[in-house]
């Protein structure tokens, strides 16, 4: 049947587009979840970009040296968490301006990875490919998009409902939210506020580190300077767009991924409708547009308040 040929081709395209879209969203998603956890606990960490890069380099280096995927991912998570620890020390212990401390971390991450990674430029390394999930991967379209992905992409997809549930229904989630909303009330209830904030910041750093590892091990295997290309900043914008909710971040991240996939598709088809640089700039511009939309719509804004104590220093003695 002619419909078969026609539809089959289209579906094939759609499936691979979907796969690229979901894949492209992974790093942004992991970083955004990490930032949500940290911000929900009251710590603003603008060092995502630096942590992504550090995670990417550490994961790549460990992977290239040992060939062990678990060690590579572990190294990436540790690198991200350690970088976050530095920020947590400045933000939570010393109480300095969290914006500046986060920027410093982004700078440091970009600079250090540039210096440390110079010998790894273009070097071959470990590649974490797709792990299709048996029967499910054969489903039309969705199978390719959702069940034929690298390990970290599955993590990115699963983490949204898990985090969402944890915030709503567990003691730990309650404690984290309380630290971000009203630290002194949490402290009065016996919550070790600073410990929780340290933990959440480091957890966020570990997730960002994994996001970085995804970039250097699965997405564009190999190390290159500044390979995250601003995905850390996009993740921060995503957190605002998602109004600090993991499930909405998932939607935002997938939107970003779809845009990236569309850009690839345009490029391969040689579409001259939009100049290439415009296509490459589209994710950044669209993120700004989405932020503007959230701000402009009173209805959206009503539900989009940041945690009340976000970025605020807490010290038990006042």
């Amino acid at each position: 049947m002619s419909a078969d040929v026609f539809g089959g081709l289209d579906l094939q395209n759609l499936a691979s587009l979907g796969q690229i879209a979901v894949k492209s969203s992974t790093a942004v998603l992991l970083a955004a979840y990490g930032e949500i956890v940290a911000e929900r606990a009251g710590v603003l960490n603008l060092g995502l970009e630096g942590m992504l890069l550090l995670g990417a380099l550490a994961g790549f280096a460990a992977g290239a040296a040992t060939g062990d995927p678990l060690l590579a991912l572990g190294a990436a998570a540790c690198a991200g968490a350690l970088a976050a620890l530095l920020h947590a020390f400045f933000a939570v212990t010393l109480g300095v301006n969290q914006v500046l401390s986060g920027l410093a971390l982004s700078l440091l991450g970009a600079g250090l990875t540039g210096v440390l990674g110079r010998d790894l430029l273009g070097a071959p390394g470990l590649v974490l490919g797709s792990l299709p999930i048996a029967a499910l991967a054969d489903l039309p379209v969705l199978g390719q998009a959702l069940f034929n992905q690298p390990l970290l992409t599955y993590l990115a997809l699963l983490l949204a409902p898990v985090l969402s549930w944890a915030f709503a229904s567990t003691r730990l989630g309650l404690v984290v939210r309380a630290c971000g909303e009203n630290a002194s009330a949490a402290y009065a209830s016996g919550v070790p506020v600073r410990l929780v904030r340290f933990g959440c910041t480091c957890f966020g750093g570990a997730l960002a580190g994994l996001g970085g590892a995804f970039l250097s091990l699965s997405y564009t295997p190999g190390w290159k300077e500044g390979l995250s290309a601003g995905q850390g900043w996009i993740a921060i914008a995503m957190v605002i767009f998602a109004t600090w909710r993991p499930l909405r971040a998932l939607c935002g991240g997938l939107l970003f991924g779809a845009l990236t996939a569309a850009q690839f598709s345009f490029q391969t088809q040689g579409a001259e409708l939009v100049p290439v640089w415009g296509l490459r700039a589209a994710p950044y511009l669209l993120t700004i547009a989405v932020l503007t939309l959230v701000q402009a719509s009173a209805r959206l804004r009503r539900y989009s308040g940041p945690p009340a104590n976000l970025g605020r220093f807490f010290h038990p003695e006042g």
Partner: peptide, 8 residues
């Protein structure tokens, strides 16, 4: 000043 978390 009550030490309650208003968002909860």
């Amino acid at each position: 000043r009550f030490s309650l978390v208003e968002a909860l």
